[in-house]
């Protein structure tokens, strides 16, 4: 008892003077003590800015003052007149589709290989595939600027050895997006495979063994048992992929030297927000870009989740 009370004195000095009162009300008040530090920071630096950004998006702001209220004009301009914003959404969509249709099958195949009992050097493989995921986007962009270098880059050097002419990866509007998608594959196929692997390892081996004893082929075991049971992980990976595609910034921005690529070929929505907000100081307009972008991401995610619900029913 003695030590318990002194612990209270040590940790909560303001109420320590009234130990008996605190003792009576401790159970009721303690959750607020635990919650308060988080809640204050959360309300000030997350909830308030989310609300304030919306208010800012309804204003025409050139600097840090309040600006002039213009209703939904920023949004109307974005949707009806702003071709560059449209271009950035198209770019993000292309990148997102590549994520879903290139990254996922590759990641799943890799995960199945990683889960195979005949695999050697398993731990080393897991560590290797985790590396790009944890390396900073700045470092990755800097490496790949050298890899994609037209005359002396590693990739063109390798392609040249099999007789392919040098590709202007970072200089041509046609090749900029494929280059960015390749970087995306390099970063995320391995880590997504590890997520799938975590899912695969929750599927009981007996279930698959029973099906095999009943004469099911390996393909039908995968089609009817493994893949349906991977549904939660698949949803998780696709959702993260879509959100990631629409929030991609550092890789595209730095791979193309703080720009948007030739003819805006890799202009990403967040890079556009940055340009509007911090190069042109149109803070209200930039806030509108942020809000509209978020609405789009939420809508796409909801549609995707609904599609998965339909898939789950049959």
């Amino acid at each position: 008892m003695e030590s318990a009370q002194s612990a209270v004195v040590n940790v909560i000095p303001p109420t320590a003077a009234k130990i008996s009162w605190w003792g009576r009300n401790e159970r009721k008040l303690i959750p607020y003590v635990f919650l308060a530090p988080f809640l204050i920071i959360f309300l000030v630096f997350t909830v308030y800015p989310v609300i304030d950004s919306f208010i800012m998006s309804l204003h025409d702001i050139d600097s840090l003052d309040a600006g002039e209220y213009i209703g939904l004009d920023n949004y109307i301009r974005l949707v009806t007149k702003d071709a560059r914003f449209g271009k950035s959404l198209v770019n993000a969509t292309v990148f997102g589709l590549a994520t879903v249709f290139l990254q996922l099958p590759l990641a799943l195949a890799l995960a199945l290989a990683l889960n195979s009992p005949v695999l050697r050097f398993r731990t080393l493989a897991r560590m290797t595939f985790f590396m790009p995921y944890i390396t900073s986007a700045v470092v990755i962009a800097m490496i790949f600027r050298m890899v994609f270098e037209e005359r002396y880059g590693l990739l063109n050097g390798m392609l040249g050895s099999v007789g392919i002419e040098p590709i202007p990866w970072l200089r041509s509007a046609d090749w900029a997006m494929p280059a960015l998608i390749l970087v995306g594959l390099w970063i995320w196929v391995g880590s997504n495979a590890l997520f799938f692997l975590a899912g695969l390892q929750t599927i009981p081996e007996e279930l698959k063994e029973a099906a095999r004893i009943d004469g099911a082929s390996e393909w039908s075991v995968f089609r009817n048992i493994t893949f349906p049971l991977l549904r939660p992980v698949t949803i998780f990976v696709i959702t993260l992929g879509i959100i990631g595609s629409f929030s991609l910034f550092t890789q595209s921005f730095l791979l193309f030297n703080g720009g948007s690529g030739p003819r805006d070929s890799v202009l990403m929505p967040v890079a556009y927000l940055y340009e509007r907000g911090f190069n042109n100081f149109k803070l209200g307009y930039a806030a509108a870009v942020g809000y509209l972008l978020t609405l789009i991401v939420v809508a796409v995610t909801v549609v995707q989740l609904l599609l998965f619900r339909i898939w789950g029913k049959d």
């Binding site: 308030y48 989310v50 950004s53 929030s247 806030a287 809000y291 978020t294």
Partner: peptide, 9 residues
């Protein structure tokens, strides 16, 4: 919620 929704404010 993506970070860019609150970035400006």
């Amino acid at each position: 919620l993506p970070f860019h929704v609150l970035l400006i404010s």
